[in-house]
């Protein structure tokens, strides 16, 4: 399907998106537009709906009301649309979710071979390049269980990049890591933003990363976007009371 995107139009568009888990109203009218190449950091207390929101963008969760358009394709129950969107959008999870029965190399090469139908040799060559990019070229033949948390998350980033996505979603990528491994993952993510100009939506509590890399901050609470703006504005002069409260808690840890 040919994207119907024109210059200046957002690559991700959410319009009045609602989501319920049973009776629980998790997303209560989210509207957000992300331009190509933009890095958006989403912050907020746990249970605010930030993970659910980015999981809706590649339809790991289906929204119940409103409209989500990704790269010109509207997300609906049409399975072809979902597959088309998923191959444009990479996702990195809090708990890595590497495939434990496959080596690092095979974790990365699986989707290009099975979905893009690349020849094995080409997929492996590209997988080695990606391992090189995330800084662990020597771990190609190693199984996930033998890697540290930081290394696993870097393989997971390489796995998402292998499909050559236009957009990368990060769902708390460093929350499950030991403190000394957080930086190596953040460095890889910074590289993506700076060198590749990747469009990124990052849910994280790493405010240092946000200040350094984000083009825009989005603060969510109780299923709505409370405030958004540049990091400079967000960290120095937040308008909303809830934002101030959150920042005071998270920055004084």
């Amino acid at each position: 399907m040919e994207p119907i995107r024109q210059a200046g139009q957002p690559i991700i568009l959410l319009e009045d998106v609602h989501k319920w888990f049973g009776r629980l109203h998790v997303l209560r009218g989210i509207s957000l537009a992300v331009r190509a190449g933009e890095v958006v950091v989403v912050a907020g207390p746990s249970g605010s709906g930030k993970s659910t929101m980015i999981r809706c963008i590649n339809r790991l969760e289906a929204h119940n009301r409103g409209r989500i358009v990704v790269d010109g394709i509207e997300l609906s129950d049409d399975l072809r649309n979902i597959d088309a969107v998923r191959s444009e959008v990479g996702m990195v999870f809090q708990s890595f979710n590497l495939f434990p029965h496959l080596t690092a190399l095979d974790n990365i090469a699986l989707a290009p071979v099975q979905v893009r139908r690349w020849p094995r040799a080409r997929a492996e060559r590209s997988a080695r390049e990606l391992l090189d990019r995330v800084g662990i070229p020597e771990k190609a033949g190693v199984y996930p269980a033998q890697l540290s948390g930081g290394q696993q998350q870097r393989v997971a980033i390489a796995r998402a990049l292998a499909m050559q996505p236009k957009i990368m979603l990060f769902d708390e990528p460093t929350s499950a890591l030991d403190p000394e491994m957080i930086q190596e993952v953040l460095d890889v993510m910074k590289g993506l933003a700076r060198d590749m100009g990747m469009t990124m939506v990052v849910v994280t509590h790493e405010m240092g990363f946000a200040r350094e890399v984000a083009d825009r901050m989005v603060f969510m609470d109780e299923g709505v976007i409370v405030e958004e703006g540049t990091p400079a504005h967000f960290f120095t002069s937040p308008k909303e009371e809830r934002t101030k409260l959150f920042l005071s808690k998270i920055l004084h840890q």
Binding site: F93, F99, H101, V115, A156
Partner: peptide, 27 residues
């Protein structure tokens, strides 16, 4: 096999059957 495995497989674009065949069943 954990739900995260299926989600990761679907997120890289594998279809339902391929997720079953290459990710869920071997484990």
């Amino acid at each position: 096999v954990g739900r995260g495995q299926t989600e990761a497989a679907r997120a890289v674009g594998l279809s339902g059957w391929k997720t079953m065949l290459f990710v869920v069943l071997p484990q």
